[in-house]
Write a protein that binds this DNA or RNA. Structure first.
Lengths: 239, 239
DNA sequence: AGACAACAACCTGTCATACAGGTTTTGAGG
DNA sequence: CCTCAAAACCTGTATGACAGGTTGTTGTCT
């Protein structure tokens, strides 16, 4: 167990990377679905002929990316699609100033112009109701910014879900963290209650267009919403 | 060093998660930029009052997400924005059948309709040249599918880069892996050389529109390109 | 004094072992 | 057949050891 070069080839980029590849390959070759169990660490250790340390770091890495779920006592399982890794990448980009909030909003606008149109075309009644409920909750709590923000985020995620394309959901949700750390700034620049209510009205318009099943109208309202939001951020001096 | 509950609070979701948070918080609070060094594992071990095992798994996890760079002997450094984690998430979604190739193409279409328009508006001369060169290389090697594919991928990534929004680049690049595993299928359904050359012509049209700085025309050509690509995949029975 | 080589200090990569605590399996007894 | 407790298995964390890479220091030679 002390000659790591005897099994396969590679070696150069480290044993852990090799182990990660082995695990993902296992998932693919066995055709595993979310919830299915993976081999135990001990089994992997034997199969790859490396120490448990290496196997464990590989499992842990995949767990950090939310590709697998781990918990004490149980074997690791294949994970459902999750936005964890993407969020961390985006947030890392922001904190290290490699991307700006403005750039994130440009991407969000691009994507949500599409999700809102798709939602108008493909939403179920339940989804339309959920979207409308989020908008209504924003109005009902409009004196409490924190709560308005959470409903705002839920609103956009609900629209993405109603697009019935999980990749859109993934991306939109990945941006939610950024939204959480900038939302209040935009809210504050809308000095008057009137402005704030107008912004909430924008959400209701979007929800209504989705309910009516009018993709063009929905996209138009979404565009206006984003233009105003970006303007609010720019007014506040956010790059 | 054997009472992990003495330092902060939390505890429940595992020491490793806590360590990961501590490291990312360190990056943020110190305002580190890509290339800047992080504390050594030993230092982190002392600071968090946990074993090296835990600290190491945390570092390794961040390294797997490409948020930091590690190499033997040197301290870990903050990493430049990289698509590694995102690619893995997307590919995981595909292999576990939680997302379909078709859905990925829909997202690509949405995003690249925007990147191509931005590229037409913001491209530098060098970027326009690189995009044109990729298209030309596709034609020159059109008998060798593998090479055409690589230039095709480079073409789209170059357009994303010319949009001058790294978030777009990140997403487009993350999809390249999926493209690599499906591209040949689409190519084969274009049975005749004539069809294949027509597809390459589409790329040249896009490059030309970007060179001319005409965002509307560029977007139109991109839309046609994607519609044909998706049709080719559908003809081949790809969901 | 300056160049350069050898060395020391530090760092990460990997291995082995140990044990605590959670989960599943098993099997004995009713 | 059901119940329930022990056994077997599994992950979470700690510790110590050593190989090999990197960097800064020192001391010698020119």
């Amino acid at each position: 167990m002390q000659d790591p070069t005897d099994t396969a080839g590679e070696s150069s980029p480290g044993l852990v990377s090799t182990a990660i590849q082995a695990i993902t390959r296992h998932i693919r070759s066995e055709g595993l679905a979310p919830g299915d169990p993976l081999p135990s660490e001990a089994a992997m250790t034997r199969q790859l002929n490396v120490s448990r340390t290496v196997v464990r770091e590989a499992f842990r890495s995949l767990s950090a990316m939310r590709l697998i779920d781990m918990s004490a006592g149980r074997r690791a399982t294949v994970a459902k699609l999750d936005t964890g890794a993407m969020s961390m990448v985006i947030e890392h980009g922001i904190t290290t100033q490699q991307i700006s909030v403005h750039q994130v909003y440009d991407v969000r606008r691009t994507i949500e112009m599409r999700t809102v149109a798709l939602a108008a075309l493909r939403r179920t009644d339940a989804e339309a109701a959920a979207i409308g409920q989020s908008a209504r909750s924003m109005r009902e709590n409009f004196l409490n910014p924190e709560i308005v923000m959470e409903h705002d985020i839920a609103f956009h995620e609900a629209i993405a879900a109603a697009s019935h394309n999980p990749v859109f959901s993934l991306i939109v949700t990945a941006f939610s963290g950024v939204t959480r750390s900038t939302w209040v700034i935009g809210w504050r620049t809308r000095s008057s209650n009137e402005d704030q209510l107008k912004m909430i009205k924008g959400h209701e318009d979007i929800a209504e267009a989705i309910l009516k099943g009018d993709p063009r109208l929905a996209a138009e309202h979404m565009a206006q919403h984003f233009d105003k939001s970006v303007k609010a951020l720019l007014d506040a001096g956010i790059a």
